[in-house]
C-alpha cells in the first residue's frame, strides 16, 4: 500500500479531531468539554492547511480557538459549576433525540459522499488558491454585499450588547 505524506498528515489531524469532537459531547465537566472543543478547532485548522486554505485555517484558530473559546472558558471559570451531571436525567429524551438526529445526519452525509465523491480525484487548485490576496479579492468583489451585511449585523450585535449590559449610557 502506497502511503503518501498527505495521508499521514491528514490522519495526524483527523483522528485527534474526531476524538476531540467526541470529547466535547461525552465530557461531563464543562471545562473538559470546552478544552476538547479548542482541540477540535485546532485540528480542523490543520485539515484546512492541508486543503491549502491557510487563511481560513489561521482565522479559525484566531477567532474560534483564540477568542470565542477563551470567553467560554472565562464564563466557566467564573461560574462555579459544582453539580453538573445532576440534571442529566431530565435531559434523557433530548439526548435520545440528539443521538437519532445526529446519527441520521451522519448516515445521510456518508451515503451522499460515497455516491458523489468517492473515488473521484480532487481538481488541482491554482497557485493563488487560498492566499490572502485571492480571498480578499473575492470578498470585496463577488461577495461584497454579504460581507457588508455581515459587518452591519455585527455592529448591530455590539450596539445591542452595550444597550443590554448598560442600563444608563
Amino acid at each position: 500500500m502506497n502511503v503518501t505524506a498527505e495521508q499521514v498528515i491528514f490522519l495526524a489531524f483527523a483522528v485527534p479531531l474526531v476524538a476531540a469532537a467526541i470529547g466535547v459531547v461525552v465530557a461531563r465537566s464543562p471545562m473538559y468539554a470546552a478544552m476538547s472543543l479548542v482541540g477540535a478547532f485546532f485540528c480542523l485548522a490543520g485539515v484546512y492547511v492541508l486543503l491549502t486554505a491557510h487563511l481560513i485555517a489561521f482565522l479559525q484558530i484566531l477567532v474560534y480557538a483564540g477568542a470565542v473559546m477563551v470567553l467560554f472558558l472565562f464564563v466557566i471559570m467564573l461560574l462555579s459549576l459544582g453539580g453538573e451531571g445532576q440534571q442529566l436525567d431530565r435531559l434523557k429524551q433530548l439526548q435520545w433525540l440528539g443521538f437519532v438526529l445526529g446519527g441520521g445526519g451522519l448516515m445521510a452525509l456518508l451515503a451522499w459522499i460515497s455516491r458523489e465523491v468517492a473515488g473521484a480525484e480532487m481538481a488541482a487548485v491554482g497557485p493563488d488558491f487560498g492566499t490572502i490576496k485571492a480571498v480578499g479579492r473575492a470578498l470585496f468583489t463577488t461577495y461584497l454585499l454579504p460581507f457588508e451585511a455581515t459587518s452591519l449585523l455585527l455592529t448591530v450585535a455590539i450596539v445591542g450588547a452595550v444597550v443590554v449590559a448598560k442600563e444608563k449610557i
Partner: peptide, 15 residues
Amino acid sequence: DAGLLYLFAIASLSV
C-alpha cells in the same frame, strides 16, 4: 502567506 495572521493566531493560544 498568512504571516502576521499566524502570529496573531498562535499568540492568542498562549492565554
